[in-house]
Design a protein around this nucleic acid. Structure first.
Lengths: 136, 136
DNA sequence: AAAACTTTGCAACCTGATTGCATAAACTTT
DNA sequence: AAAGTTTATGCAATCAGGTTGCAAAGTTTT
């Protein structure tokens, strides 16, 4: 029962159940973004749908954001504490084609775009693929 | 038996079977990118796996490119005639959140990026979401 | 036209995501 | 603190898109 985790959840108006604390802790221990399955594998006997719903709750409350990196499974990563999941918080994600890890490039915001007339910008998913420093 | 389609396929070293001509024609009639399922629905009695393999052949031979727009189904669109599916040919795709259509923004190349040291750039998928002119 | 290769159709399967429903746990209200 | 209400969890089942194995049909080569 981690007091710190507890607070992080409460700050986002998420009732800190045991399950949620566990999932939060898994995410916070990782620098990379994790898939539902990867999170599931961190536990022995936790049901997939529970984690699924936990992640949904987290995402609805802006505690985490998701990335579709094109590998077929959506990845999840903690947001920064001041994140509101709005345009300013969008950033590039990097998928290493060797180790398969997906990194949040929080220092690289999605670039500004001049969309053609009458196209509106709401959101964006920008995934760069290549080799990460570890696999170089 | 369309002579023109026939040539387009041959130019890419694809044997122009009836099936392939049909799939090509469906793609060329559309401005937007189409999913496997959407293509399947254009026909009465064509097997999904055949279309799947047709698309694979097309993609292997650089006749089409695919986009993962995050909707859960990969979309396919014809490449330009001079496309080599290399970095220069990468462009932004736009997913309209109202009509669900995915457009190739061929006039909008993927912007240049300064990746942190030791990250290499191989490829990128940049999908912008918003409202398209039709749905405005 | 026989042999060799390619394409197609069918059925089956896989994986990740998602839902329905019943039980369990946590809050509320009296 | 008991009864009632809401919320969270676990299990089983389902769904959708993607993908493969295999045999039949169609092509090409010899």
């Amino acid at each position: 029962m981690n007091k710190d985790t507890d607070n992080k959840l409460k700050l986002r108006n998420i009732k800190p159940t045991a399950m949620r604390q566990l999932v939060y802790d898994v995410l916070s221990k990782q620098k990379k973004a994790l898939s539902l399955i990867e999170i599931e594998q961190q536990f022995e006997n936790v049901d997939r749908s529970t984690i699924f719903r936990t992640l949904k709750t987290f995402q609805d409350n802006l505690l985490i954001h998701s990335v579709d990196d094109g590998t077929g499974s959506v990845k999840y990563a903690l947001c920064d504490e001041d994140c509101t999941c709005s345009l300013n918080d969008l950033h590039i994600h990097f998928l290493c084609t060797k180790c398969g890890q997906t990194h949040c490039m929080k220092s690289m915001p999605i670039p500004n775009l001049d969309l053609p007339k009458d196209f509106s910008f709401e959101n964006a998913n920008f995934v760069v693929k290549g080799t990460c420093p570890n696999c170089k």
